[in-house]
Amino acid sequence: MLIRPAFATLLLATLVLAGCAARPLVLGSPSPSPTDGAACAQPGAASDAVAVSGELGASPVVTAQGPFDVDRVERTVLIEGDGQPVLAGDLVDVTITMLNATSGDRAPGTADARVLLREGAAQPGLLATILCSTPGSRVVGVVPAEDAFGTVGQPELAIGPDDDLVLVVDVLARLPLQADGAPVALPDGFPGLGLEFDADGRPTVTIPAVDPPTELLSAPVLEGSGPLVGAGDEFLIQFQGLNWRTGEVFDETWGDVPRSLLAVLPGVDAAIVGRAVGSRVVVIVPPDEGFGAAGSPSWGIAGTDTVVYVVDILATAPPPA
């Protein structure tokens, strides 16, 4: 699993709630999104009073002429990017810097994050700050406590109970939610898995009533044209894992959000490294390159079980320092 600096880990577990939503997230379904000024969070005296310098995507210098006490999310665009605004339901790559709007204290560090712009996937104040931005933008959001940490606060991030927030968000890119490569046929001799994909890319896999192969096998069903995943890279993926013996799904990201990882299983990692972003890969993993002799009892995987993964490779980058 990806190991992040402590600040990023804490922020991603609090501001960004992906994987911890009260209800399942449905990716790719139609969702109205703000396209006009009336639907977007508007500037205010507080957000206009925040000055930011430094390169986009790097840790900025922030000067906030506070303290601030706001009753709505105020949003000011400091750098205007290009292209179409990000929409509700999009997945975006951002950097986030946070200050206490009451005391002016800054939370340690700047976090890189991938945020799903859907209610329940991130705090309302963060969503309101990001929505309506174009990739390449830097925006300031001043967020009331009820749209952030509320009456609990977050002492580890220098946020007390009922403290408002200042968020500086660099919106770097809109990310895909499924692989977009060119279709290719599975090679001759590849086990006869039944594969179907819905509009969001979620697979339905039918396991044939035969013994699984004893060696690691992988093949693309979509061939991407993006950068290649290098050894040691962090990769962003959608995936579904099934037990060959039972045909049951034991883990997946469809219906939740893609995951940024440094490793999955040895066999899956071997199939991902060297593949191009945009690819969809089917991997059949024998026990010695999967969960090993211990299996995974919590997922119903025995030490002799072969597993099947369908993986969409969405992005790749060198691991964080």
Rank of each mutant, 00 (worst) to 15 (best):
Val249Ser: 15
Ala317Asp: 13
Pro212Asp: 07
Gly66Gln: 07
Thr214Met: 06
Leu216Asp: 06
Leu27Pro: 00
Gln238Phe: 11
Gly120Cys: 00
Thr102Gly: 09
Ser298Pro: 03
Gly224Ile: 06
Ala209Gln: 06
Thr102Pro: 05
Leu216Lys: 12
Leu193Arg: 13
Asp71Glu: 10
Ser31Pro: 02
Leu78Glu: 07
Asp162Thr: 14
Gln84Pro: 01
Ala64Tyr: 12
Ala231Asn: 15
Asp93Thr: 03
Leu27Ser: 01
Asp170Lys: 04
Pro213Ile: 03
Ala101Pro: 07
Leu127Ala: 10
Pro213Met: 05
Val184Glu: 09
Leu131Gln: 14
Gly54Lys: 07
Thr76Arg: 13
Ser298Arg: 12
Asp162Ile: 14
Val205Cys: 11
Val92Thr: 11
Gly57Lys: 09
Pro286Ile: 10
Ala122Lys: 12
Leu242Asn: 12
Leu25Pro: 00
Arg259Ala: 11
Ala199Phe: 06
Thr129Gly: 14
Ala51Lys: 14
Asp82Phe: 04
Ala145Lys: 08
Glu74Lys: 08
Leu172Lys: 06
Pro34Arg: 02
Ala294Trp: 09
Gly141Asn: 07
Glu119Ala: 14
Ala6Thr: 02
Glu119Leu: 10
Trp299Phe: 12
Arg174Pro: 05
Thr95Ser: 12
Pro144Asn: 08
Phe235Tyr: 13
Glu252Ser: 05
Val281Arg: 01
Gly230Cys: 14
Leu25Gly: 03
Ala179Glu: 05
Asp71Thr: 03
Ile96His: 03
Gln84Val: 10
Gly104Thr: 07
Gly66Arg: 04
Ala49Gln: 10
Gly192Pro: 11
Leu27His: 00
Leu12Val: 01
Gly292Trp: 13
Val77Ala: 02
Glu234Met: 07
Val268Tyr: 10
